[in-house]
Design a protein around this nucleic acid. Structure first.
Length: 123
DNA sequence: GATCTGACTATCT
DNA sequence: AAGATAGCCAGAT
């Protein structure tokens, strides 16, 4: 088992998030727990923030046209402990994140919270 | 190295 | 239910 380091931290986060199936969501805390770092929720969020920036590059379109839609991390499937969406999801806003989740079949208990009871992914 | 910031969380109002 | 507060810990300045 490789020791968790700052250097591989982001990659580990991305690996885990990629395992979240369509129609399910996970939380920052859950990911942190899988990494063995229960209190790293904020760092998980930080890692996903970095990922967002990489998606800005033109390589995103190339990967997409190549049929590699999943080559990017489905960060819209990561919500906070209350099922609340990130206040500033990527550069499309929380509205876009919610739309993507609804398309995938994730249920919402109200306007701003996903149904964690039904849709929280538990590995 | 001190201080501030934040895609977090638990707890208290 | 929603806002404030206090811990949390890596990065940025």
């Amino acid at each position: 088992m490789t020791r968790l380091t700052k250097k591989n931290f982001k990659d580990r986060v991305y690996e885990i998030v990629k395992k979240v199936p369509k129609g399910k969501v996970t939380t920052y805390g859950e990911v942190a727990q899988v990494l063995g770092k229960v209190r790293w929720a904020r760092q998980v969020g930080w890692a996903l923030h970095q990922n967002k920036q990489s998606l800005r590059s033109s390589s995103f379109d190339k990967l997409r046209t190549a049929g590699l839609k999943d080559s990017n991390v489905p960060c819209h499937r990561v919500v906070d402990r209350n099922g609340r969406l990130a206040p500033n999801f990527a550069f499309n806003g929380a509205k876009e994140q919610r739309r993507r989740l609804e398309v995938e079949g994730v249920e919402f208990v109200d306007r701003a919270h996903v149904d964690l009871e039904k849709c929280l992914w538990q590995g």
